[in-house]
Simulated scan of single mutants.
Amino acid sequence: MGRYVVERVKSGIPGFDDLIQGGFPKGTTVLVTGPTGSGKTTFAVQFAYKGAELYNEPAVIVTLEERAQDLRKEMATFGWDLERLEREKKIAIVDGVSAVVGLPSEEQYVLEGNLNTEDFLRYIYRVVKAINAKRLVIDSIPSIAFRLHDESRIREVLLQLNTILLEMGVASILTTEAPDPGRGKISRYGIEEYIARGVVLLDFVEKEVELKRYLLIRKMRETKHSMKKYPFEITEEGIVVYPSGEVY
């Protein structure tokens, strides 16, 4: 019997794939966690955008933190033209904010304000199929909980979401807040890291009175990876990881 070879999905983040044997395992769900301002949305959107742009892998971005039009503007600062890829049906952005805050939306894909769990998951499934997406981003898990008005149901929702993602076979990034990574609390609800097959922590460390960004791979199934903290920067062209940089 030949050796089992894991198919890999390129992250689109310079330097990062060197840390995970060439990319994320195909069809995997990765949790990107960290405190506010650590770069989670940028990391997730870069994965989606570069997948569509460089590797011809269409992507769905479900934005629950900011309106689609604001996300486009923010990402344009990196030179990423999301609108062009949307026109080419390589990216679909699902606006999950407008209805919740009571604003009208002119987007093609909009989540209604009062969707239940099943409808929410079904809608995402439909958009993935509509553009034959190979990648999916959901930003963020706490915002799903906020929509539910019942945080105790988040466990059930995440388990259902995980089942559907595995069934779809897309490579997915979910983002969540890490309230206190220094003390080991790396996700808001404590269940996110268990449903994900990979966990990437983005955080800051104080270095000579300056805050420096670092990345730590807490878990990645089917992958040999280091448990060191690697420096990264958010440059004019997005996130860059330095695998041979000074480890904190």
Rank of each mutant, 00 (worst) to 15 (best):
M1D: 02
M1I: 02
V5Y: 15
V9G: 01
G12N: 11
P14Y: 05
D18S: 09
I20K: 13
P25E: 11
K26I: 07
G27I: 00
T28L: 03
V32C: 11
T33W: 04
T33I: 07
P35C: 00
T42R: 01
F43W: 08
A44P: 05
V45E: 02
A48Y: 01
K50P: 03
K50F: 01
G51C: 05
A52H: 14
Y55L: 01
N56I: 04
E57Q: 10
P58S: 04
V62L: 08
E65K: 15
R67C: 06
A68T: 07
A68Y: 01
D70E: 15
R72F: 00
E74V: 15
M75H: 11
M75I: 13
A76L: 15
F78H: 04
G79I: 03
L82R: 00
E86K: 01
R87I: 13
K89R: 15
I91V: 14
I93A: 03
V94G: 10
V94R: 12
G96V: 04
A99S: 10
L103W: 09
S105Y: 04
E106K: 14
G113Y: 06
G113K: 07
G113N: 07
N116R: 08
N116S: 09
D119P: 01
Y125P: 02
K129A: 11
K129W: 06
I131N: 11
I131A: 10
I131G: 09
N132Y: 00
D139Q: 08
S143N: 15
F146V: 13
E151P: 14
S152D: 04
R155H: 12
E156F: 06
V157R: 03
V157D: 00
L159P: 07
L165A: 09
L165W: 10
L166W: 08
E167P: 07
M168K: 06
V170G: 14
S172C: 04
L174H: 11
T175K: 08
T175R: 07
E177F: 13
A178E: 12
A178D: 11
R183S: 14
I186C: 01
I191P: 10
I191K: 11
I191V: 15
I191W: 09
E192Q: 08
E192V: 08
E193T: 14
Y194P: 03
R197I: 09
L202G: 11
D203L: 13
V205E: 02
V205K: 09
E208F: 06
R213H: 14
Y214W: 08
L215N: 02
L216M: 12
R218V: 10
R218N: 10
M220I: 05
E222M: 14
K224Y: 10
H225N: 06
S226F: 10
Y230Q: 00
F232T: 05
F232P: 12
E236M: 10
E237H: 15
Y242T: 07
P243I: 06
P243L: 07
S244G: 07
G245M: 08
V247F: 09
